[in-house]
Design a protein around this nucleic acid. Structure first.
Lengths: 213, 213
DNA sequence: GTCTATAACCTGATAGAC
DNA sequence: GTCTATCAGGTTATAGAC
Protein backbone atom coordinates (compact mmCIF):
# COMPACT_ATOMS: atom_id res chain seq x y z
CA UNK A 1 0.00 0.00 0.00
CA UNK A 2 1.32 3.48 -0.84
CA UNK A 3 2.29 6.02 1.78
CA UNK A 4 -0.48 8.30 0.52
CA UNK A 5 -3.16 5.64 0.99
CA UNK A 6 -1.83 4.65 4.41
CA UNK A 7 -2.11 8.27 5.46
CA UNK A 8 -5.68 8.62 4.13
CA UNK A 9 -6.82 5.44 5.86
CA UNK A 10 -5.16 6.18 9.17
CA UNK A 11 -6.29 9.81 9.24
CA UNK A 12 -9.87 8.77 8.49
CA UNK A 13 -9.89 6.29 11.35
CA UNK A 14 -8.24 8.55 13.92
CA UNK A 15 -10.30 11.60 12.95
CA UNK A 16 -13.42 9.48 13.46
CA UNK A 17 -12.33 8.00 16.78
CA UNK A 18 -10.76 11.03 18.45
CA UNK A 19 -11.95 14.09 16.54
CA UNK A 20 -10.27 16.28 13.96
CA UNK A 21 -8.54 18.94 16.02
CA UNK A 22 -7.40 16.62 18.79
CA UNK A 23 -5.75 14.17 16.37
CA UNK A 24 -2.18 15.30 15.71
CA UNK A 25 -0.14 14.65 12.60
CA UNK A 26 2.40 12.95 14.83
CA UNK A 27 -0.12 10.31 15.93
CA UNK A 28 -1.39 9.80 12.38
CA UNK A 29 2.07 9.30 10.91
CA UNK A 30 3.20 7.07 13.77
CA UNK A 31 0.15 4.78 13.46
CA UNK A 32 0.46 4.77 9.68
CA UNK A 33 4.10 3.77 10.00
CA UNK A 34 5.34 6.65 7.89
CA UNK A 35 7.53 9.64 8.59
CA UNK A 36 6.10 12.83 10.05
CA UNK A 37 7.23 14.88 7.08
CA UNK A 38 5.34 12.62 4.64
CA UNK A 39 2.02 14.32 5.35
CA UNK A 40 3.53 17.62 4.31
CA UNK A 41 5.07 16.16 1.18
CA UNK A 42 2.00 14.29 -0.14
CA UNK A 43 -0.53 16.86 1.05
CA UNK A 44 0.32 20.40 2.03
CA UNK A 45 -1.23 20.69 5.45
CA UNK A 46 -3.43 18.96 7.95
CA UNK A 47 -6.54 20.60 6.51
CA UNK A 48 -5.63 19.56 2.96
CA UNK A 49 -5.23 16.00 4.23
CA UNK A 50 -8.73 16.17 5.69
CA UNK A 51 -10.19 17.45 2.41
CA UNK A 52 -8.51 14.58 0.57
CA UNK A 53 -9.99 12.07 3.02
CA UNK A 54 -13.45 13.53 2.46
CA UNK A 55 -13.27 13.76 -1.33
CA UNK A 56 -12.16 10.14 -1.68
CA UNK A 57 -15.33 8.81 0.01
CA UNK A 58 -18.00 11.44 -0.41
CA UNK A 59 -17.92 11.86 -4.18
CA UNK A 60 -19.04 8.25 -4.86
CA UNK A 61 -21.63 8.48 -2.07
CA UNK A 62 -23.15 11.63 -3.53
CA UNK A 63 -23.25 10.09 -7.01
CA UNK A 64 -25.17 7.12 -5.67
CA UNK A 65 -27.53 9.38 -3.72
CA UNK A 66 -28.41 11.35 -6.83
CA UNK A 67 -28.76 8.18 -8.92
CA UNK A 68 -31.23 6.77 -6.41
CA UNK A 69 -33.14 10.04 -6.36
CA UNK A 70 -33.21 10.10 -10.17
CA UNK A 71 -34.62 6.58 -10.21
CA UNK A 72 -37.22 7.49 -7.62
CA UNK A 73 -38.33 10.58 -9.56
CA UNK A 74 -38.43 8.66 -12.85
CA UNK A 75 -40.64 5.97 -11.32
CA UNK A 76 -43.00 8.55 -9.85
CA UNK A 77 -43.60 10.38 -13.14
CA UNK A 78 -45.96 13.23 -12.41
CA UNK A 79 -47.32 11.48 -9.34
CA UNK A 80 -46.33 12.05 -5.74
CA UNK A 81 -42.80 11.18 -4.59
CA UNK A 82 -42.75 8.46 -1.92
CA UNK A 83 -41.13 10.05 1.17
CA UNK A 84 -39.52 6.80 2.28
CA UNK A 85 -37.72 6.53 -1.07
CA UNK A 86 -36.35 10.06 -0.84
CA UNK A 87 -35.17 9.40 2.71
CA UNK A 88 -33.61 6.11 1.67
CA UNK A 89 -31.78 7.74 -1.25
CA UNK A 90 -30.33 10.27 1.17
CA UNK A 91 -29.31 7.89 3.96
CA UNK A 92 -28.65 4.43 2.53
CA UNK A 93 -25.53 5.28 0.51
CA UNK A 94 -23.75 6.68 3.55
CA UNK A 95 -25.13 4.25 6.13
CA UNK A 96 -24.17 1.20 4.09
CA UNK A 97 -20.55 2.31 4.34
CA UNK A 98 -20.69 1.11 7.97
CA UNK A 99 -20.36 -2.48 6.75
CA UNK A 100 -17.46 -1.77 4.36
CA UNK A 101 -13.73 -1.07 4.89
CA UNK A 102 -14.73 2.61 4.76
CA UNK A 103 -16.72 2.21 7.98
CA UNK A 104 -14.90 5.04 9.73
CA UNK A 105 -15.88 7.65 7.18
CA UNK A 106 -19.43 8.34 8.31
CA UNK A 107 -18.46 8.79 11.98
CA UNK A 108 -15.72 11.15 10.80
CA UNK A 109 -18.22 13.28 8.93
CA UNK A 110 -20.41 13.53 12.00
CA UNK A 111 -17.36 14.77 13.90
CA UNK A 112 -16.90 17.54 11.38
CA UNK A 113 -20.50 18.63 11.74
CA UNK A 114 -20.35 18.87 15.51
CA UNK A 115 -16.79 20.01 16.15
CA UNK A 116 -15.87 23.25 14.44
CA UNK A 117 -18.48 25.53 12.89
CA UNK A 118 -15.72 27.06 10.80
CA UNK A 119 -14.72 23.80 9.14
CA UNK A 120 -18.33 22.68 8.89
CA UNK A 121 -19.17 25.58 6.60
CA UNK A 122 -16.22 24.92 4.27
CA UNK A 123 -16.93 21.19 3.97
CA UNK A 124 -20.63 21.73 3.41
CA UNK A 125 -20.12 24.28 0.65
CA UNK A 126 -17.44 22.21 -1.04
CA UNK A 127 -18.99 18.75 -1.00
CA UNK A 128 -22.63 18.84 0.03
CA UNK A 129 -24.35 22.05 -1.02
CA UNK A 130 -25.61 20.90 -4.43
CA UNK A 131 -26.80 17.51 -3.16
CA UNK A 132 -28.52 19.22 -0.27
CA UNK A 133 -30.48 21.47 -2.62
CA UNK A 134 -31.70 18.55 -4.73
CA UNK A 135 -32.91 16.64 -1.69
CA UNK A 136 -34.63 19.62 -0.12
CA UNK A 137 -36.68 20.06 -3.29
CA UNK A 138 -37.45 16.33 -3.35
CA UNK A 139 -38.71 16.40 0.24
CA UNK A 140 -40.88 19.41 -0.56
CA UNK A 141 -42.49 17.41 -3.34
CA UNK A 142 -42.75 14.23 -1.25
CA UNK A 143 -44.38 15.86 1.78
CA UNK A 144 -46.45 18.65 0.18
CA UNK A 145 -48.58 19.31 3.26
CA UNK A 146 -45.45 20.37 5.17
CA UNK A 147 -44.56 24.09 4.97
CA UNK A 148 -40.95 24.91 3.98
CA UNK A 149 -40.22 26.31 7.38
CA UNK A 150 -41.26 23.14 9.15
CA UNK A 151 -39.27 21.07 6.66
CA UNK A 152 -36.12 22.99 7.57
CA UNK A 153 -36.64 22.22 11.23
CA UNK A 154 -37.38 18.56 10.63
CA UNK A 155 -34.33 18.06 8.42
CA UNK A 156 -32.22 19.56 11.21
CA UNK A 157 -33.65 16.98 13.60
CA UNK A 158 -33.07 14.28 10.98
CA UNK A 159 -29.40 15.13 10.52
CA UNK A 160 -28.97 15.13 14.27
CA UNK A 161 -30.40 11.65 14.67
CA UNK A 162 -28.32 10.29 11.79
CA UNK A 163 -25.16 12.00 12.95
CA UNK A 164 -25.53 10.75 16.50
CA UNK A 165 -26.18 7.23 15.26
CA UNK A 166 -22.79 7.13 13.53
CA UNK A 167 -20.91 8.08 16.64
CA UNK A 168 -23.15 6.56 19.28
CA UNK A 169 -24.09 3.20 17.83
CA UNK A 170 -21.06 1.52 19.37
CA UNK A 171 -21.87 2.60 22.92
CA UNK A 172 -25.48 1.51 22.39
CA UNK A 173 -24.35 -2.10 22.63
CA UNK A 174 -22.91 -1.40 26.09
CA UNK A 175 -25.83 0.70 27.31
CA UNK A 176 -28.38 -1.86 26.19
CA UNK A 177 -26.48 -4.69 27.84
CA UNK A 178 -25.82 -6.32 24.48
CA UNK A 179 -29.45 -6.23 23.34
CA UNK A 180 -28.76 -3.84 20.47
CA UNK A 181 -26.37 -4.87 17.72
CA UNK A 182 -24.94 -1.90 15.80
CA UNK A 183 -23.11 -4.23 13.42
CA UNK A 184 -26.53 -5.11 11.95
CA UNK A 185 -26.35 -2.27 9.45
CA UNK A 186 -29.49 -3.16 7.55
CA UNK A 187 -31.44 -3.23 10.80
CA UNK A 188 -29.99 0.13 11.79
CA UNK A 189 -31.06 1.62 8.45
CA UNK A 190 -34.60 0.28 8.78
CA UNK A 191 -34.96 1.45 12.36
CA UNK A 192 -33.54 4.88 11.64
CA UNK A 193 -35.63 5.39 8.52
CA UNK A 194 -38.90 4.29 10.11
CA UNK A 195 -38.27 6.57 13.08
CA UNK A 196 -37.40 9.56 10.90
CA UNK A 197 -40.18 8.95 8.38
CA UNK A 198 -42.75 9.11 11.15
CA UNK A 199 -41.24 12.38 12.38
CA UNK A 200 -41.03 13.92 8.92
CA UNK A 201 -44.63 13.01 8.10
CA UNK A 202 -46.09 13.95 11.49
CA UNK A 203 -48.93 16.48 11.47
CA UNK A 204 -47.80 20.06 12.09
CA UNK A 205 -48.58 20.88 15.73
CA UNK A 206 -51.52 23.26 16.03
CA UNK A 207 -49.50 25.67 18.16
CA UNK A 208 -47.11 26.55 15.34
CA UNK A 209 -49.67 26.43 12.49
CA UNK A 210 -50.41 30.17 12.68
CA UNK A 211 -46.85 31.05 11.70
CA UNK A 212 -47.12 29.04 8.49
CA UNK A 213 -47.53 30.39 4.90
CA UNK B 1 -18.84 39.14 40.31
CA UNK B 2 -16.33 36.75 41.87
CA UNK B 3 -13.38 35.31 40.01
CA UNK B 4 -14.83 31.86 40.48
CA UNK B 5 -18.14 32.81 38.84
CA UNK B 6 -16.41 34.64 36.02
CA UNK B 7 -14.43 31.49 35.30
CA UNK B 8 -17.52 29.27 35.36
CA UNK B 9 -19.46 31.58 33.03
CA UNK B 10 -16.62 32.09 30.57
CA UNK B 11 -15.63 28.42 30.49
CA UNK B 12 -19.25 27.42 29.87
CA UNK B 13 -19.55 29.79 26.94
CA UNK B 14 -16.20 28.94 25.32
CA UNK B 15 -16.62 25.20 25.84
CA UNK B 16 -19.98 25.46 24.07
CA UNK B 17 -18.73 27.59 21.19
CA UNK B 18 -15.37 25.97 20.48
CA UNK B 19 -15.42 22.58 22.17
CA UNK B 20 -13.85 21.32 25.38
CA UNK B 21 -10.44 20.11 24.30
CA UNK B 22 -9.76 22.93 21.88
CA UNK B 23 -10.54 25.63 24.44
CA UNK B 24 -7.37 26.42 26.40
CA UNK B 25 -7.17 27.70 29.94
CA UNK B 26 -5.25 30.66 28.56
CA UNK B 27 -8.21 31.75 26.41
CA UNK B 28 -10.68 31.20 29.23
CA UNK B 29 -8.71 33.25 31.74
CA UNK B 30 -7.98 36.01 29.23
CA UNK B 31 -11.66 36.39 28.26
CA UNK B 32 -12.72 36.19 31.89
CA UNK B 33 -10.23 38.93 32.73
CA UNK B 34 -8.51 36.89 35.43
CA UNK B 35 -5.04 35.51 35.83
CA UNK B 36 -4.03 32.21 34.30
CA UNK B 37 -3.11 30.75 37.67
CA UNK B 38 -6.59 31.48 39.05
CA UNK B 39 -8.12 28.42 37.42
CA UNK B 40 -5.60 26.26 39.22
CA UNK B 41 -6.19 27.99 42.53
CA UNK B 42 -10.02 27.91 42.54
CA UNK B 43 -10.34 24.54 40.83
CA UNK B 44 -7.55 22.00 40.58
CA UNK B 45 -7.44 21.31 36.90
CA UNK B 46 -9.20 21.92 33.62
CA UNK B 47 -11.29 18.78 34.06
CA UNK B 48 -12.34 19.82 37.58
CA UNK B 49 -13.39 23.19 36.16
CA UNK B 50 -15.56 21.40 33.62
CA UNK B 51 -17.19 19.26 36.30
CA UNK B 52 -17.97 22.40 38.31
CA UNK B 53 -19.57 24.01 35.26
CA UNK B 54 -21.75 20.95 34.74
CA UNK B 55 -22.79 20.50 38.38
CA UNK B 56 -23.90 24.12 38.71
CA UNK B 57 -26.47 23.79 35.91
CA UNK B 58 -27.38 20.15 35.66
CA UNK B 59 -28.41 19.47 39.25
CA UNK B 60 -31.38 21.89 39.13
CA UNK B 61 -32.33 20.64 35.67
CA UNK B 62 -32.41 17.04 36.83
CA UNK B 63 -34.47 17.97 39.88
CA UNK B 64 -37.05 19.63 37.67
CA UNK B 65 -37.07 16.69 35.27
CA UNK B 66 -37.81 14.24 38.08
CA UNK B 67 -40.44 16.55 39.59
CA UNK B 68 -42.26 16.74 36.25
CA UNK B 69 -42.04 12.97 35.88
CA UNK B 70 -43.37 12.51 39.43
CA UNK B 71 -46.33 14.77 38.63
CA UNK B 72 -47.00 12.91 35.42
CA UNK B 73 -46.94 9.53 37.16
CA UNK B 74 -49.13 10.78 39.99
CA UNK B 75 -51.75 12.09 37.54
CA UNK B 76 -51.76 8.83 35.62
CA UNK B 77 -52.39 6.65 38.66
CA UNK B 78 -52.55 3.05 37.46
CA UNK B 79 -53.48 4.15 33.95
CA UNK B 80 -51.17 4.53 30.98
CA UNK B 81 -48.44 7.18 31.04
CA UNK B 82 -48.90 9.81 28.29
CA UNK B 83 -45.74 9.58 26.12
CA UNK B 84 -45.76 13.30 25.31
CA UNK B 85 -45.64 14.12 29.03
CA UNK B 86 -42.67 11.83 29.63
CA UNK B 87 -40.87 13.35 26.65
CA UNK B 88 -41.69 16.86 27.83
CA UNK B 89 -40.40 16.13 31.34
CA UNK B 90 -37.13 14.96 29.83
CA UNK B 91 -36.61 17.76 27.34
CA UNK B 92 -38.34 20.93 28.54
CA UNK B 93 -36.16 21.62 31.59
CA UNK B 94 -32.99 21.62 29.49
CA UNK B 95 -34.45 23.24 26.36
CA UNK B 96 -35.93 26.13 28.30
CA UNK B 97 -32.43 27.08 29.41
CA UNK B 98 -31.93 28.38 25.86
CA UNK B 99 -33.91 31.48 26.76
CA UNK B 100 -32.08 32.15 30.04
CA UNK B 101 -28.61 33.50 30.90
CA UNK B 102 -27.52 29.84 31.04
CA UNK B 103 -28.21 29.47 27.32
CA UNK B 104 -24.71 28.15 26.59
CA UNK B 105 -25.02 25.17 28.89
CA UNK B 106 -27.09 22.88 26.69
CA UNK B 107 -24.84 23.34 23.66
CA UNK B 108 -21.87 22.63 25.92
CA UNK B 109 -23.40 19.34 27.03
CA UNK B 110 -23.95 18.30 23.44
CA UNK B 111 -20.25 18.99 22.82
CA UNK B 112 -19.33 16.61 25.62
CA UNK B 113 -21.49 13.88 24.17
CA UNK B 114 -19.95 14.11 20.72
CA UNK B 115 -16.34 15.00 21.47
CA UNK B 116 -14.55 12.53 23.68
CA UNK B 117 -15.98 9.11 24.48
CA UNK B 118 -13.74 9.02 27.54
CA UNK B 119 -15.18 12.16 29.10
CA UNK B 120 -18.69 11.26 27.99
CA UNK B 121 -18.65 8.14 30.13
CA UNK B 122 -17.47 9.99 33.25
CA UNK B 123 -20.02 12.79 32.92
CA UNK B 124 -22.86 10.38 32.22
CA UNK B 125 -22.09 8.20 35.24
CA UNK B 126 -21.62 11.18 37.53
CA UNK B 127 -24.60 13.36 36.60
CA UNK B 128 -27.07 11.51 34.41
CA UNK B 129 -27.14 7.78 35.11
CA UNK B 130 -29.89 7.78 37.75
CA UNK B 131 -32.12 10.19 35.82
CA UNK B 132 -31.61 8.13 32.69
CA UNK B 133 -32.77 4.97 34.44
CA UNK B 134 -35.98 6.63 35.70
CA UNK B 135 -36.86 7.92 32.25
CA UNK B 136 -36.14 4.66 30.49
CA UNK B 137 -38.62 2.92 32.78
CA UNK B 138 -41.16 5.70 32.21
CA UNK B 139 -40.90 5.34 28.44
CA UNK B 140 -41.32 1.58 28.74
CA UNK B 141 -44.57 2.17 30.59
CA UNK B 142 -45.69 4.96 28.24
CA UNK B 143 -45.10 3.02 25.01
CA UNK B 144 -45.84 -0.56 26.09
CA UNK B 145 -46.13 -1.92 22.54
CA UNK B 146 -42.46 -1.01 21.91
CA UNK B 147 -39.92 -3.74 22.78
CA UNK B 148 -37.01 -2.70 25.00
CA UNK B 149 -34.53 -3.18 22.21
CA UNK B 150 -36.39 -0.83 19.91
CA UNK B 151 -36.75 1.71 22.70
CA UNK B 152 -32.96 1.79 23.13
CA UNK B 153 -32.52 2.53 19.45
CA UNK B 154 -35.19 5.21 19.39
CA UNK B 155 -33.80 6.98 22.44
CA UNK B 156 -30.42 7.05 20.70
CA UNK B 157 -32.07 8.76 17.72
CA UNK B 158 -33.89 11.10 20.10
CA UNK B 159 -30.72 12.22 21.87
CA UNK B 160 -29.12 12.81 18.51
CA UNK B 161 -31.89 15.08 17.31
CA UNK B 162 -31.94 17.03 20.58
CA UNK B 163 -28.17 17.31 20.75
CA UNK B 164 -27.89 18.52 17.18
CA UNK B 165 -30.63 21.07 17.77
CA UNK B 166 -28.60 22.72 20.52
CA UNK B 167 -25.59 23.20 18.34
CA UNK B 168 -27.23 23.59 14.96
CA UNK B 169 -30.20 25.82 15.67
CA UNK B 170 -28.13 28.95 15.10
CA UNK B 171 -27.02 27.97 11.60
CA UNK B 172 -30.61 27.00 10.77
CA UNK B 173 -31.50 30.67 10.58
CA UNK B 174 -28.84 31.18 7.89
CA UNK B 175 -29.62 28.00 5.95
CA UNK B 176 -33.34 28.74 5.90
CA UNK B 177 -32.74 32.30 4.72
CA UNK B 178 -34.23 33.72 7.91
CA UNK B 179 -37.42 31.64 7.76
CA UNK B 180 -36.61 29.68 10.91
CA UNK B 181 -36.19 31.51 14.20
CA UNK B 182 -34.20 29.53 16.78
CA UNK B 183 -34.76 32.22 19.41
CA UNK B 184 -38.40 31.06 19.53
CA UNK B 185 -37.63 28.50 22.21
CA UNK B 186 -41.22 27.45 22.83
CA UNK B 187 -41.67 26.85 19.10
CA UNK B 188 -38.48 24.81 19.01
CA UNK B 189 -39.67 22.66 21.90
CA UNK B 190 -43.05 22.01 20.27
CA UNK B 191 -41.51 21.18 16.90
CA UNK B 192 -38.88 18.92 18.41
CA UNK B 193 -41.32 17.10 20.66
CA UNK B 194 -43.92 16.52 17.95
CA UNK B 195 -41.23 15.19 15.62
CA UNK B 196 -39.76 12.88 18.25
CA UNK B 197 -43.11 11.72 19.61
CA UNK B 198 -44.11 10.53 16.14
CA UNK B 199 -40.82 8.66 15.83
CA UNK B 200 -41.03 7.11 19.29
CA UNK B 201 -44.62 5.94 18.74
CA UNK B 202 -44.12 4.74 15.17
CA UNK B 203 -45.05 1.12 14.45
CA UNK B 204 -42.11 -1.28 14.61
CA UNK B 205 -41.06 -2.01 11.01
CA UNK B 206 -42.04 -5.54 9.95
CA UNK B 207 -38.49 -6.34 8.88
CA UNK B 208 -37.11 -6.14 12.42
CA UNK B 209 -40.14 -7.64 14.21
CA UNK B 210 -38.73 -11.18 14.15
CA UNK B 211 -35.77 -10.17 16.31
CA UNK B 212 -38.09 -8.89 19.04
CA UNK B 213 -38.94 -10.54 22.41
C1' DG C 1 10.34 10.10 -1.78
C1' DT C 2 12.03 9.65 2.68
C1' DC C 3 14.63 11.03 6.47
C1' DT C 4 16.57 14.21 10.65
C1' DA C 5 16.62 18.37 12.85
C1' DT C 6 14.64 22.39 14.10
C1' DA C 7 11.91 26.76 14.07
C1' DA C 8 8.09 29.04 16.23
C1' DC C 9 4.49 28.39 19.05
C1' DC C 10 0.86 26.49 22.07
C1' DT C 11 -0.57 23.55 26.08
C1' DG C 12 -1.71 22.35 31.37
C1' DA C 13 0.21 22.84 35.63
C1' DT C 14 2.92 24.79 39.46
C1' DA C 15 6.48 27.20 42.51
C1' DG C 16 7.13 31.10 44.92
C1' DA C 17 6.96 36.35 45.47
C1' DC C 18 3.63 39.70 47.01
C1' DG D 1 -6.12 35.58 46.45
C1' DT D 2 -3.46 37.22 42.81
C1' DC D 3 0.61 37.77 40.27
C1' DT D 4 5.08 36.45 37.34
C1' DA D 5 8.01 33.15 35.66
C1' DT D 6 8.79 28.79 34.30
C1' DC D 7 8.75 23.61 33.57
C1' DA D 8 8.08 19.82 30.58
C1' DG D 9 5.77 18.71 27.10
C1' DG D 10 2.90 19.01 23.03
C1' DT D 11 1.67 21.14 18.16
C1' DT D 12 2.15 22.35 12.74
C1' DA D 13 5.22 23.14 9.32
C1' DT D 14 9.62 23.35 6.85
C1' DA D 15 14.65 23.33 5.49
C1' DG D 16 18.04 20.53 3.83
C1' DA D 17 20.74 15.96 3.76
C1' DC D 18 20.34 11.55 1.54
Amino acid sequence: MTTKTRLLDTAERLFAQHGIETTSLRIITREAGVNLAAVNYHFQSKEALLHAVIARRLDPVNQRRLAMLDACEAAAGNGPLPPHQVLDALLRPVLEMLSTPAKEFAPMMSRIFTESSDLTEKVFQKHLAHVSARFFAAFERAIPHLPRKELFWRLLFTFGAVSHTFGGAKVLRTISGGECDPSDVEGTIRRLESFLLAGLEAPVPAEVQHAVH
